[in-house]
């Protein structure tokens, strides 16, 4: 049976991993390649590297870093942050990345999804979406959550799928950093709306939260950062726990 995936996310700034509460107050949590190798050895199923400041600073991402990750690690990884063209994405593919994630650039130019899928295949294209619950509606936000848009979560992920996205990485801005659990209802809505895998992100604080997002939340993968970086939850312990609860885990 296909296993549910545990994905540590390494937010990158200036070549170092960072993770803040609700995307501000950044804290330094180490070297991304070293940390990635550690997570791989501990049983992480996949890794996501996001340059969270890239879009804001108009900075292109990190082919050199992608290359070093690919050289060192034997598990799949996604790289994102500021990827806004076929050329940006192609440089990541050439460096050995398995997937790229696009976020703000896809909202501003949805044709980008079609262009990327045509050039590299849908399996290479992850649509990352940051959404915030405001008066009962989930609104898509840009630039690491700084800029609200007129788009709502579920219609946007459906459109992204139809345009060629191969996977959805959904982050709840309301839950991110709060450690009170994933946005279960919204994750289930996203997962039911599309026929591509969904990675849930934002809010993991306990091992039970992963169980909840894999069952009630219908997520294919659970992503977290600080609880892994600061060793609040060990990946081997988390995977053992989920196995005893009957979740299919590698």
């Amino acid at each position: 049976m296909l296993a549910k995936r545990i994905i540590p996310c390494l937010d990158i700034k200036d070549g170092r991993t960072v993770k803040g509460i609700n995307f501000v107050n950044l804290r330094d949590a180490g070297d991304p390649v070293e940390l990635g190798a550690l997570y791989s050895a501990q049983g992480a199923d996949e890794l996501v590297f996001l340059d969270i400041t890239a879009t804001h600073e108009k900075r292109k991402t990190m082919a050199a870093l992608a290359r070093e990750i690919s050289r060192r690690l034997s598990i799949p990884f996604t790289i994102g942050g500021g990827i806004s063209s076929v050329e940006d994405a192609g440089a990541m593919l050439d460096a050995g990345a398995d997937k790229v994630s696009v976020n703000s650039a896809a909202v501003r130019n949805p044709n980008l999804l079609e262009e990327l899928a045509l050039a590299f295949g849908s399996q290479f294209v992850v649509l990352a979406v940051d959404a915030k619950l405001i008066d009962g509606q989930w609104w898509v936000h840009l630039n690491g959550g700084r800029i609200p848009t007129e788009r709502q979560l579920v219609p946007w992920v459906k459109e992204a799928e139809s345009r060629g996205a191969g996977e959805i990485l959904f982050t709840s801005m309301n839950h991110d950093g709060a450690k009170t659990g994933f946005a279960i209802d919204a994750t289930a809505q996203v997962s039911e709306a599309v026929r591509i895998p969904v990675i849930a992100s934002g809010g993991a604080g306990t091992m039970e939260h992963f169980y909840d997002v894999f069952t009630a939340g219908k997520a294919d993968a659970g992503l977290a950062a600080s609880i892994f970086h600061f060793r609040e939850i060990g990946i081997p312990d988390l995977k053992d726990y989920l196995k005893t609860k009957g979740i299919v885990i590698r």
Partner: peptide, 15 residues
């Protein structure tokens, strides 16, 4: 061909 709403591609770790 999905029969129970399974997702395609088959992506991830399998035994």
């Amino acid at each position: 061909q999905p029969v129970k709403g399974e997702k395609v591609p088959h992506m991830g770790w399998n035994s």
